[in-house]
């Protein structure tokens, strides 16, 4: 066993799920987890609980926050000032990371990225999609955001400024999309159904019903 891991050649596909022989890194995951459990760093129950918490997170949480912002101006103001504190005020704890909510308006369209890695508001959106972590998006969205948005079917008018926000581990962004016309007076639950993950990343906008 090498003391440093760096030279295992693999293809880009994730390993097949549980069928066939274990891959090198699947084997490593099992070995490391077992050793850490034996050393008392954490328990097997902790691993299960962490996975359950991960599975429980989905873009529905973020959509709830956006719908609240659309229907409660005081909450929206608070969200734009301090995203973490505003979420905490409605019972959504984001931990130590700083959440910055950026609002789309008639003149500004926001989009988020993590060019260096894959930082993402996972407490509000769940785990990031593959493309968010991949080279094409990370490289290009900061240089040619309009072209990238077009690949998602989103055409931003020339007179609208596109702002790209590059996340870090400690500072994560979420986009508050514009509320679609014709949805004034809707209940928050109904509005939340219009708010998709991609709207909150900023690569699409909510569909007008």
């Amino acid at each position: 066993m090498a003391s440093h891991v760096h030279d295992q050649a693999h293809d880009h596909r994730p390993p097949p799920d549980e069928d066939g022989p274990l891959s090198y890194y699947e084997t490593m995951e099992i070995a490391v987890r077992e050793i850490l459990i034996e050393k008392g760093v954490f328990g097997a129950d902790d691993v299960r609980a962490a996975i359950e918490a991960m599975d429980a997170r989905s873009p529905a949480k973020g959509a709830e926050v956006v719908a609240r912002a659309w229907t409660d101006p005081a909450f929206k103001d608070a969200l734009l000032v301090d995203g973490s504190a505003a979420c905490a005020s409605i019972g959504i704890e984001l931990g130590p990371l700083r959440l910055i909510a950026v609002e789309n308006t008639a003149t500004v369209h926001n989009v988020i990225v993590c060019t260096l890695c894959s930082c993402y508001p996972r407490n509000l959106l769940g785990l990031p999609p593959d493309w968010y972590k991949a080279k094409a998006y990370r490289s290009r969205v900061v240089r040619e955001p309009r072209a990238v948005l077009r690949e998602f079917g989103t055409e931003v008018p020339d007179d609208v400024t596109v702002r790209v926000h590059d996340s870090t581990a400690d500072m994560r962004y979420i986009v508050v999309p514009r509320q679609p016309a014709g949805t004034e007076g809707w209940e928050p639950e109904r509005l939340a159904a219009l708010v998709t993950r991609d709207c909150m990343i900023g690569v699409t906008v909510p569909k007008t019903p």
Binding site: D17, E18, V41, V47, A53, A136, V142
Partner: peptide, 30 residues
């Protein structure tokens, strides 16, 4: 890689395999 040239965004997504979730959980715990 910010700003470097690259191909079009591949939008296909895969569901996380159980072992991938365990790696994520490992990091969350550590």
């Amino acid at each position: 890689m910010g700003g470097l040239p690259a191909g079009s965004v591949e939008r296909a997504e895969h569901a996380h395999a159980p072992w991938e979730k365990r790696v994520d959980a490992l990091m969350v715990l550590l």
